[in-house]
Computed example of a mutant assay.
Amino acid sequence: MDSDDMRLATAGDLAVVGDLVNSAYGHYVARIGRKPGPMLDDHAARIAAGWTHLLERGGAVLGLVVLIPQPDALLVENVAVSPRAQGLGLGRRLMEFAEKRARAAGLTRLRLYTHVAMVENQAIYARLGYAETRRVHEAGLHRIYMEKPLA
């Protein structure tokens, strides 16, 4: 990989985080019929909690992952890659970062959710070893929860 740096987002990154999420998820609005969950999230609160991690390359923020600790897992609440950087393996890099964080915390699984209409994401997660655990309707969205055990 080119020199990628991971760092925690700060309050000063709020606008960059919002722009990145909106650009990464904007194309789903027509498919879902409304903004996807990540576009509605309280990014300031997630940054303040220390959950938002940024991936930078050459000083530019190209991706992010929001990781929320749970008692039995690390929840990958959001993975976003700038459209201009998609296809470069950054999403995989963010997911590998999540695995390292979970292992470092002594957790044995990763958990995530995605919208039922985001079929390409479901396929990516399945290739990365995630399996569907349940389907729910929450926050006005139809979500699929998936988990990956960590060996």
Rank of each mutant, 00 (worst) to 15 (best):
M1A: 15
A11G: 13
A11P: 02
D13S: 04
L14R: 02
A15F: 08
V17I: 09
G18S: 12
V21L: 02
A24S: 11
A24R: 05
Y25M: 07
H27F: 14
A30W: 11
A30F: 09
R31Y: 08
P38D: 10
L40D: 15
D41I: 00
D42S: 08
H43N: 10
I47W: 00
A48T: 13
T52C: 09
L54N: 01
L55N: 01
G59E: 15
L62N: 04
G63T: 06
L64D: 02
V66P: 06
P71N: 07
L74G: 03
V76K: 03
V76R: 02
E77S: 05
N78I: 07
A80D: 09
P83T: 04
A85L: 02
Q86H: 12
G87D: 13
G87V: 11
G87S: 10
G89L: 08
R93S: 05
L94Y: 06
M95E: 08
F97T: 02
A98Y: 04
A98M: 03
E99I: 05
A102L: 00
R103H: 03
G106V: 13
R111F: 07
L112H: 03
Y113M: 06
T114K: 02
H115L: 02
H115T: 03
A117C: 06
E120L: 04
N121Q: 13
N121W: 06
Q122D: 07
R127M: 12
L128T: 08
L128R: 13
G129F: 09
G129V: 10
T133R: 15
T133K: 14
T133M: 13
R135N: 12
H137A: 14
E138H: 10
E138S: 10
A139V: 09
A139M: 09
G140H: 11
H142I: 00
H142D: 15
K148P: 02
K148L: 08
P149E: 15
L150W: 09
L150Y: 10
